[in-house]
Design a protein around this nucleic acid. Structure first.
Lengths: 186, 186
DNA sequence: TCGGCAGTGTAGCAAGTGCTACAGTCGTGT
DNA sequence: ACACGACTGTAGCACTTGCTACACTGCCGA
């Protein structure tokens, strides 16, 4: 489809930045192309279709988020690992990746492609990253897998509420409660 | 704006059914109007704008979901209350209301109106309903409020993963884990 | 009887969508 | 020198979007 992989990867990164800023749901090729200094024509030429562009962007965004998790130093125990993970998820610049993931998941809620498929991939990779961090923090692998499922779900829920600007203290307490609760699974 | 409140409420309910079936994100007036046996012209006349229509639909959807929660008989304790709540959230027809809520929250992620405002309202009402059920189930009010925050977030996360058709047994285990974890907060 | 007004149908607008047809410009291999 | 293929700019297509202008109907009060 595309012959210049260099240009394609450059544009994928730039497009990811753009989407992270402007959101995924209303995404349209022409404004994006203008920001990249090109035209919708060129984006379609190099990516084949908007769907392929979106898929590439979502994968890139997910890669960034996972990389940020992987860079996290091990935590002393499960309880503090939950807090550390939330801090990592909330930290620039990965926080916006999670936001995009949530948008993609919403778009895939009714099975629409390519969102559903890409979200399925991304979710698997993301959950693995969570488990890996827990294991690195000394948590038993089986427990880590179970804890990760609960923690992942709760994180996504917190992320959905973020623009509601709930009291930050309340959110911090909720995260602490989550950590305590999950730690009690041991 | 609209002079015939009867017609407006009828259409609100019918439009809610339609949105519950087809999703909120790609919603367009003309197909919706066709399904209701009218025209986009009429919808705009009676609702004023698409945004007002959407707001009405979201409120109606949320009302339904909350009603389903309110109809739930009290649970014996906090732990089983979490399981019962999840069963209620998952049960027809309220499950689709949660899905729409997730879509609306995603649409409001970047502050876009009317989604952000309506989601803020809906979230408050929904959380209150969760707390109410927990209190009715004999949970201390302060604990119920904290548990509800964690449970709510986790539920939304589970909802996001639903179309990924994760292993049902794994999901059941995750819900059970959540219940155990939250119960440990006591 | 008549005027006004709520309600409705028809048609259309301006804007934006993803995508494509066509023509051109390069650099490169023969 | 020439042809070929990769790449790109211009223009446009067919379609959808929310919304509106205009004309018309019917009912209700004066």
């Amino acid at each position: 489809m595309a012959k210049d992989p260099q240009r394609r990867t450059e544009w994928t990164e730039a497009a990811t930045d753009y989407v992270l800023d402007h959101g995924l749901i209303g995404l349209s090729l022409r404004p994006l192309a203008a920001e990249l200094g090109t035209s919708d024509r060129m984006l379609l030429y190099h990516f084949g279709s908007k769907d392929e562009l979106v898929a590439a962007v979502l994968r890139a965004s997910n890669d960034r988020a996972v990389a940020q998790l992987a860079a996290l130093p091990p935590s002393p125990d499960l309880r503090s690992a939950v807090g550390d993970l939330w801090a990592a998820v909330q930290a620039e610049p990965g926080d916006r990746c999670t936001r995009i993931y949530v948008e993609a998941a919403a778009l895939g809620l009714f099975g629409r492609e390519p969102y559903a498929s890409v979200v399925r991939e991304a979710n698997a990779v993301w959950t693995t990253a969570l488990v890996t961090h827990l294991v690195r923090s000394g948590v038993d692998r089986a427990l880590a897998a179970r804890a990760a499922d609960v923690v992942d779900a709760a994180f996504m829920g917190f992320q959905l509420d973020l623009p509601l600007d709930v009291d930050p203290a309340a959110r911090a307490r909720a995260v602490a409660d989550l950590a305590d609760a999950v730690a009690a699974l041991a």
